[in-house]
Design a protein around this nucleic acid. Sequence first.
DNA 1: CAATCGTCCTGCGGGC
DNA 2: TGCCCGCAGGACGATT
Length: 245
Amino acid sequence: MPELPEVETIKRQLARKIIGKKLNKQKITNVRRRGKLLIVDFNNNSSLIFHLKLTGQLLFDGKPSSLTRKVFYFEDGSLLVFNDARKFGWWKIVKNSRAIEKQFGPEALAVKLPAFRNILSRRPNAKIKPLLMDQKFIAGIGNIYSCEILYAAKIHPLRLTRTLNDKETKQIFQNIKKILKAAIEHQGSSVEYYIDACGKKGNFVKHHQVYQKEGQRCRRCGTIIKRIKVGSRSTYFCPHCQSIC
DNA sequence: CAATCGTCCTGCGGGC
DNA sequence: TGCCCGCAGGACGATT
């Protein structure tokens, strides 16, 4: 599932490869990421926006296959293949990307601690895990990294934000940065269909501590990792390290 | 308004 | 072996 680190990996690769190329007579001036969105800007201020959702792939000079839903042809003969097995993903061209971008909360890697505290205080009765995944509050975090962040911070996924003290809030904040940066350094997590713009898998899965580790032992304390449903999403945690109280 | 729940879709794994 | 059922999940819309 492409989350912030996976989209960031694709963004960096595509930026190197397609800035300056022309698509539909328009020149590509930038390739950006906003949350989990990949945004290709053109010189007339329009943008091509992608959301890869669960199974989307963007392959530069990739070979079209049965999974391919769209091929973008650049004027120099190179191309960009958009694959999506489960068809949840989308792309669209907009005259100006500002309206879409402003629906998102601050970038997970850019938000400062006071702003993060403010975000949590606005939702005192929210469970911390679904709130971390709510793009309107913080942009970029999905199911894999919310589990890994809360494990690193030693916070139970069902904790209500009003029960978090200053130290715990800071732990979550610091581990958002730490986990996402580490995942980017390893080109993201290849679970299900994720591959980067060159068709390569990310290496961060072997650094996962809890995600899809149900029944295995916690690497800190040896307790068996549990899986529960939170808002109908699989949620993995260590019942000892991430105690509810 | 905030929080929760159903929905979209398809590949895959378990069970018989 | 092959079929069927249920599960997985981001984000939107409906509901409470």
